[in-house]
Amino acid sequence: MSVLTLEGVGFDYPGLKVIDKLDLTVAKHELVVCVGPSGCGKSTLLSLLGGHLAPTRGRLDRKGQSRTIYQDGGLFPWLTVRQNIAGGLPHSTPAEARDKKVDEWLEITRLSEFAGTYPHQLSGGMRQRVELSRALAAETDILLLDEPFSALDYQSRRRMRHELVATLAERPRTVVMVTHDIEEAVMIGDRVVVLGSRPTSVRKVLELTGGRSRTPASPGVAEAEQAIMDELGLS
């Protein structure tokens, strides 16, 4: 069953065609990673998927609610870690259940001892863990990730990648992630969608096998990476 369906979707800013004739379907609990040249419209695509923008042309069908995790700065700096995560929960959640859920996510993301701290007092990796907790705690069907790890150093990025994969294994969601990091895309994506330059559309789709915890030595990873580089003209 497809959770996200885009048929001939186009989006224009005044005087600028950003996306054109984009077709894509994302199945339930699939993790699709979109890569493409800088400025090709990856973030605009996520804004369309998240309902923040409406397509200028074509049809976009979204089954369920979504949450977006941004590269940085998506946390509310005036709220503590606990308050940020709690703020992401549905308003109807009773206070007791809210506290329990927040405690659970603080535990999962190893942030319990930082529950009372403010985002600016945390490292970049910890802030992203809070973002992840807030988005996942909301238990929405769809998770949209806008270059979520690009502001992190290499080690933090790898650790966060593992945490995301492990969390999704326990609590599956439909995920669309955009990234400029080709290695990241082929390590965790079930499918990698290669987008062309503006106005962007899908140029190539690669199916990846062997689970989401791949290493550079995993079968097919090097070939997929090379195929993406070729498609983007980076070879």
Binding site: T68, G73, F76, W78, A138
Partner: peptide, 29 residues
């Protein structure tokens, strides 16, 4: 005020009043 705050608020389904009192005002404090 960064647009990203409003996008997160939209995702959370906050009303206009909630956005004013829980996003805009604390963001400009």
């Amino acid at each position: 005020v960064p647009k990203i705050y409003y996008r997160v608020a939209e995702d959370m389904g906050l009303s206009d009043a909630d956005i004013l009192f829980h996003i805009t005002l604390p963001a400009i404090m």
